[in-house]
Design a protein around this nucleic acid. Structure first.
Ligand code: FES
Ligand code: FES
Lengths: 152, 152
DNA sequence: CGGAATCAGAACCAAAAGAGTTCTATTTTG
DNA sequence: CAAAATAGAACTCTTTTGGTTCTGATTCCG
């Protein structure tokens, strides 16, 4: 089945916690571990990855923790998922990082289609911000609007 | 990284071969194995799954083989991927088969959003037929049209 | 007939990826 | 300096994937 990894799931879960806490909310791994019922090491690992991806900023030392790097409205699901799971591309040859190559790339008859499909999926995810995730009803409406006004 | 399994990849590859052969084209595993440079057991396994999913019909015995169950224009990428990899749902709780349940389904604040996202992705894949896959340039245009006239 | 070709289904094994823990720095505060 | 926090990497265990093998059932054709 095509599905997110648990890591990405955790990432989204934790990021929504930050979104609820707002831009000024500084949360430590112990805070989040109790809030989310995830183990502390797991929370730790996840937050570190989000920090490396530039979605969170960290403050070390006593009373340290993490905080959103940007406003919740400026962080998309696509970014979170890519931070945790790596590039979103159904087939190896079409990552938008430009890496993979299958050897027949130049002549591959289905390449064009895959490009379109991958963009469609990425755009779906890029169209949803953390802010929308914590306001579900508004969120779903906005997605539909976005897709309508700016189709693939 | 979010990506298709090789099984699904093989499924799509083999189905495009059938699409090129047309509705009347009867291809055996040995035929396809030589055409695709996949091992015969692998081709065999893949075709059996596609048959079970109702996308191919089989003919046993000497000079047997497989053939498209429907016209290539009536078989979508979504069907092929689901036949090989199972339901397409980024999060377990939202398979459209209605199976999974995380325990907080009733009150989950992000459920609505995930439903929208999953449908968007499914629709992208359901909007592409085998026929379009073997005519790349036409295909990509048609996808765009479809999304424009019938957004998520 | 009867054997060869072909599909059907399941079991099986190895390799890779995923999930989670642990350990050892490093930084900051008080 | 000691305590509280993040940083980074290594490591193990489990699950999934990828692929093969084996046995059985069906059909064609000489
Ligand atoms: S399979 Fe690699 S470009 Fe088509
Ligand atoms: S996580 Fe299961 S319904 Fe939201």
């Amino acid at each position: 089945m095509i599905r997110l990894t648990k890591q990405a799931d955790y990432g989204i879960l934790l990021m929504t916690q930050f979104a609820r806490a707002g831009m000024s909310g500084l949360l430590s791994t112990t805070d989040l571990s109790t809030r989310s019922r995830l183990s502390q090491p797991m929370v730790n690992k996840t937050l570190k990855q989000l920090q490396r991806a530039g979605l969170l900023v960290s403050h070390r030392g006593v009373n340290g923790g993490y905080r959103l790097a940007r406003d919740a409205g400026a962080i998309t699901l696509e970014e979170i998922i890519e931070a945790m799971d790596g590039p979103i591309a159904l087939t190896e040859c079409h990552e938008h990082t430009g890496g993979g190559d299958c050897g027949i790339k130049a002549t591959c008859p289905t390449r064009v289609n895959w490009g379109v499909i991958n963009s469609a999926i990425r755009d779906s995810l890029a169209g949803i911000t953390l802010l929308q995730m914590i306001h579900p009803l508004l969120g779903s409406r906005r997605i539909k609007e976005r897709v309508k006004t700016n189709p693939v």
